[in-house]
Design a protein around this nucleic acid. Structure first.
Lengths: 77, 77
DNA sequence: TCATTATGTTGCATTAATGCTACATAGCAT
DNA sequence: ATGCTATGTAGCATTAATGCAACATAATGA
């Protein structure tokens, strides 16, 4: 958020996406967003809206909490 | 999202908040946002950022998926 | 070699999310 | 009656999230 620039959101989008053999474009199509938006999210240049997070989670068959966290994810799951 | 004005996000924030005996101000303090932001969310006038959704879920001891959904919630849980 | 695909980078425009201030109302307690 | 708390509403300012276009690079395959 603009009012909380110090608190990032960590994610495992790339990990989950590649595990399904999807390109960013594939995931973007499923989630209904621009393919570069997926890139920004994977590089954690910004955090998504809740709507997008829910769509991505659905597209990747994961729980929001499995894909996104306020705390860094541990190595290898 | 601005690019998906047709897809709202449903939530049970008020239900979960009152169940804990919290006022909007209480929840806002916990989540680190303005108390009126909670009001806007409860009235579903807009959907939160993922960061805020994660903070609210944590503040209410709930999973994001228990509090927010792309589909309307059924009656009484 | 050439084309395609996937990805990264930059830049610009639009808009929703959030903060904040002020005011109104209703309920409750004193 | 008065004050306090919780909530709703409206308006304005700021900024992050998203779209989109253009270009670069690397890998792959024909």
């Amino acid at each position: 958020m603009s009012r909380n620039p110090e608190e990032p959101v960590y994610n495992r989008i790339e990990e989950a996406r590649t595990a399904l053999g999807l390109s960013r474009q594939d995931l973007a199509d499923k989630a209904g967003v621009h393919y570069q938006t997926i890139g920004y999210l994977e590089r954690e240049e910004y955090s998504p809206s809740l709507v997008l997070a829910l769509r991505i989670a659905k597209s990747l068959n994961q729980e929001v909490s499995e894909l996104f966290s306020l705390n860094p994810f541990k190595k290898g799951k």
